[in-house]
């Protein structure tokens, strides 16, 4: 799952490289929201997790 997240970020960078500024910002914002969701997934009350 984390690799897919990096892939979305790669898409944002590639869109910027192609000069598609608005598209890159949209993809980047989507990636940021997904990153927050991933962060929430890895936050646990159990201190032995999420090292």
């Amino acid at each position: 799952m984390m690799a897919a997240l990096f892939l979305v970020w790669l898409g944002a960078f590639v869109a910027a490289a192609k000069g598609r500024r608005n598209l890159s910002i949209v993809i980047g914002l989507a990636a940021l929201i997904l990153s927050l969701a991933m962060f929430r997934y890895h936050v646990s009350d159990n201190i032995t997790l999420s090292l």
Partner: peptide, 17 residues
């Protein structure tokens, strides 16, 4: 670790802007 990877994402996101 997973949080270390998320920190890398934070670095990439900041760098992207």
């Amino acid at each position: 670790c997973p949080l270390c990877l998320l920190i890398r994402i934070g670095m990439l996101a900041t760098g992207f802007g």
